[in-house]
Computed example of a mutant assay.
Amino acid sequence: MTELLRFCGRCGGDGVDISGREDRLRFRDRDVLKPAAGVQQPLRGHHILQAEACRHQRVGAPPDRGSVHPCCKAFPERSEFPIIPALFELLAIVSAGCALIIYLVVPEVPAAMSGTGAPSSNSLRTVYADPRFWRLAPLSATCIGTAWALQGLWAAPWLSDVEDLDRPGLLWHLLIMAIALSLGGLLWGVAVDRARRRGIGPRPLLGLVATMFIAAQLALILRLPLPSYVPWIIVAAVGAGTVLSYAILAEYFPKELAGRANAALNVFHIGTAFVVQYMTGLVVQVWAPIDGHYPEVAYQTAFAFNVGLQIVAGVWFALTWIVTRRGEGNELGAFSLKPLHALEVGGRRLFLQDRESTR
Rank of each mutant, 00 (worst) to 15 (best):
A178S: 15
G184K: 07
E77N: 15
G152C: 09
G97M: 02
V127M: 02
M113C: 05
G189I: 05
L91A: 11
S140F: 14
W158M: 12
L186K: 04
L174Y: 12
P82A: 11
D161L: 13
G115D: 10
I179K: 06
I176Q: 12
W134D: 04
Y103M: 07
V127E: 01
A92M: 09
V105M: 13
G184S: 04
P131M: 12
L186A: 11
G66S: 15
A53V: 00
A74I: 08
L104G: 01
S160N: 10
S160I: 10
C54D: 01
N122F: 10
W188P: 00
F81K: 10
E163K: 10
G117Y: 08
G152P: 09
E80K: 10
L175H: 03
G185H: 01
L187R: 01
L150R: 03
M113V: 14
P131C: 10
G115H: 07
G185M: 09
V68I: 14
L104Y: 01
R55Y: 03
G145L: 11
P85K: 08
L187H: 06
V59W: 04
G60Y: 03
A156M: 14
V59T: 05
G145N: 11
G60L: 03
P138W: 03
W188S: 00
S121H: 07
V127F: 03
P107I: 08
G60A: 05
I84C: 01
A141F: 07
L100S: 04
S140N: 07
S160Q: 06
A141H: 05
S123F: 03
P76V: 13
S114G: 15
R135F: 00
V109I: 15
S182E: 06
N122D: 08
A61Y: 00
A61W: 00
I179R: 06
A156I: 13
L90W: 10
L181W: 07
P76F: 14
L90H: 05
E108H: 11
T146K: 13
G97I: 01
V162N: 06
A118P: 01
A92S: 11
I84W: 10
A112K: 08
F75P: 03
I176G: 01
I93T: 10
T126E: 13
I179E: 02
F133M: 13
P62V: 05
F75C: 09
L159V: 09
Y103F: 13
A149M: 09
G184M: 06
R58V: 09
P82C: 09
E77R: 15
A74E: 13
I179N: 02
A96I: 11
W148A: 14
I101M: 10
T126H: 04
C98H: 07
A118Y: 12
D164Y: 08
L124D: 01
R167V: 11
L91K: 02
M177E: 04
